[in-house]
């Protein structure tokens, strides 16, 4: 029945949407966390250097 094709397509769409969003936000979070640590470390170095 071709309607199962649409069922599968719909579920794929939902999984793709959810996991895609989780993946993107996860990677984004790691990138920001690394950048935050690097910045804090530079701040503490300049404050110590003063």
């Amino acid at each position: 029945m071709n309607s199962t094709f649409f069922l599968i397509a719909a579920y794929l769409a939902i999984w793709a949407g959810i996991f895609g969003y989780l993946l993107v936000t996860g990677r984004h979070q790691q990138r920001l966390a690394r950048r935050l640590e690097m910045l804090e470390e530079r701040i503490s170095r300049t404050e110590a250097g003063q």
Binding site: M1, S3, T4, L7, Y11
Partner: peptide
């Protein structure tokens, strides 16, 4: 509608 109606559950959840 048969199987295709099962989309409804997650459609409404979204």
């Amino acid at each position: 509608m048969g199987l295709v109606q099962k989309i409804f559950y997650f459609h409404l959840s979204c």
